[in-house]
Design a binder for these strands. Sequence first.
DNA 1: GTCTATAATTTGATAGAC
DNA 2: GTCTATCAAATTATAGAC
Lengths: 178, 178
Amino acid sequence: MSKKEALLKAAQLKVRSGGYNNFSFRELATAVGIKSASVHYHFPTKEDLGAELAHQYTNDFLNALGEPQLLNASGINPIDAYINQFRNALLEDKKMCLCGLLGAESDSLPEKVRNETKRFFEHNIEWLEKAHAVVAPESKAAAKKNAIKTIAMLEGAMLISKAVDNNDVFELAVTELG
Amino acid sequence: MSKKEALLKAAQLKVRSGGYNNFSFRELATAVGIKSASVHYHFPTKEDLGAELAHQYTNDFLNALGEPQLLNASGINPIDAYINQFRNALLEDKKMCLCGLLGAESDSLPEKVRNETKRFFEHNIEWLEKAHAVVAPESKAAAKKNAIKTIAMLEGAMLISKAVDNNDVFELAVTELG
DNA sequence: GTCTATAATTTGATAGAC
DNA sequence: GTCTATCAAATTATAGAC
């Protein structure tokens, strides 16, 4: 893993624990064994790092899923697969969704970071629209509404599970989603 | 309004925009016309301020609603009233729920603040359990599950509306909640 | 209750050597 | 790519006067 990749990985953990203001260049540098000044070689400013972090997170998240049509053709319910990806983030990483946290603090984010956070949700809603359409054919408007309801419930369930420190809350909230 | 009340009000706006790390004693002091050192007279540490902020927010939130049984007796659906309180926070204040944001960054919060944030959700889930029980009699387990689903959807819908900067998302997500 | 003054630390960022 | 050295600014917090 390159130093740049390691820096993004370290940053992801910090942001998913406490948001955009919860990491410093010095902390990341120490975590990967370089000096603070060297971080600026990879990311000119903190805003650049934050934007690249959210952008990569979005791509990784969607790439790990694959296309809903292909999942369905393989006998996998794409909505179940989507829920499982959120479940794993919560149970394995024991962390919030990166863009869930950034989305909540959207008002105070630097522009580039805010834009990348918005992009996460736009692309995820689009993915879920396709998923809903492929699982149970319905109107375009109904698919969009169901897509929004699905991701809203997942982000909310994650948030509250973290807040009360009890993952059962997540399971109770998402039981009837799939 | 006392200086202390004004400080909490200023802090609430900052935290609801960007989380616990998004305000400083100096900013709050300037906002209410005193000096940073004087803030420590009202709140010994930042953790104390954060905890009192979340505690007061929880009390104000529930007091504004009143008891679900009383609402129901007055011909008001308590779940609709609850949804409206979230809607107003988003449309009028144009801000996230304070404890929604704090809950998302729970892992990195000072202990007192984390505990008060947890208390917000425990009390709100309890309130919603009563509301569901009063609207449509059902098992205690079912009422609890519905309470969790309701607040998860509201927090998630709010979060995503902020992230994509479009309040229609909130309305789409909550249409079938009441 | 509020002030001045100040301490100790952390922060994002830059210049320039290697 | 990484370093040393450094900076200006911001942060939480305290001591003591008024």
